[in-house]
Each structure stands twice: as structure tokens, then as C-alpha cells.
Amino acid sequence: MAEDNREELPSVGDIDKMIHEPARLLIVAHLFVVESADFLFLMRQTGMTFGNLSSHMSRLEAAGYIDVEKEFVGKKPNTKLSLTRSGREAFEGYRQSMRQLFADGAPGNPEESGNHGQRS
């Protein structure tokens, strides 16, 4: 059974590194649960600084995962961010890989292997 699980686990190469980086994962996860949010909202929710958020935002935009729209709210400029379709698909794929990884238990983890043994 342990062998079967090992075959289903995602390989390192399957994990999307653009999303796997913790700061970008937070940004994408927060955008995944809403339709759109502005720069300030993401700063507050993720606890990231302006510069840090800005640099990760540029990378995600270059990868085609987020859509950045500049607009004016009243007289003030506002940056609205939303996930693109490919961004959503990438995050869903990433979640699925991680769920699979955590649910099945990492190979070589004696505790998890023990549990599997007890269950079967």
C-alpha cells in the first residue's frame, strides 16, 4: 500500500515554484478567495511591505497569474489585483498536489508509515 501511495505522490518537478514561494503563495491564496482586491488590502492581509509585495506582484504578473489594473478612486490612484484564469488553475493544481502530499503522508515518515500500517 505504501508503494502505491508513493507512486501517486507529486514529484518535485510537478510543484509550481512560482506559487510555492511562501510570499507569493500568500498573495495568490488571498486573491483566490475574492474576486479582486487592491494593493493595500493585500498588504494588510499578508503583512508584507510595499516593496516586497510590489516585487512579488510583478513576478506573478509576468507569469500571467495575476491581472493588475490601475484605476482612480476619487482622485487617488488605486491598484486593483485579481487572479487570471491560469492563476486560478495553477493555484488549484498546487492545492491538489499539496493535499495529496499531506493526506497520503510523505514517504519515509516513520510515524505516517506506522499509521498506514495500523489502518490497513
Binding site: S36, L40, F41, V73, N78
Partner: peptide
């Protein structure tokens, strides 16, 4: 805290 549009 910024502006956000929640999902459907």
C-alpha cells in the same frame, strides 16, 4: 484596510 470585492 483597502478595497476588496468578495466572491459570488
Amino acid at each position: 484596510i483597502g478595497r476588496v470585492k468578495f466572491g459570488p
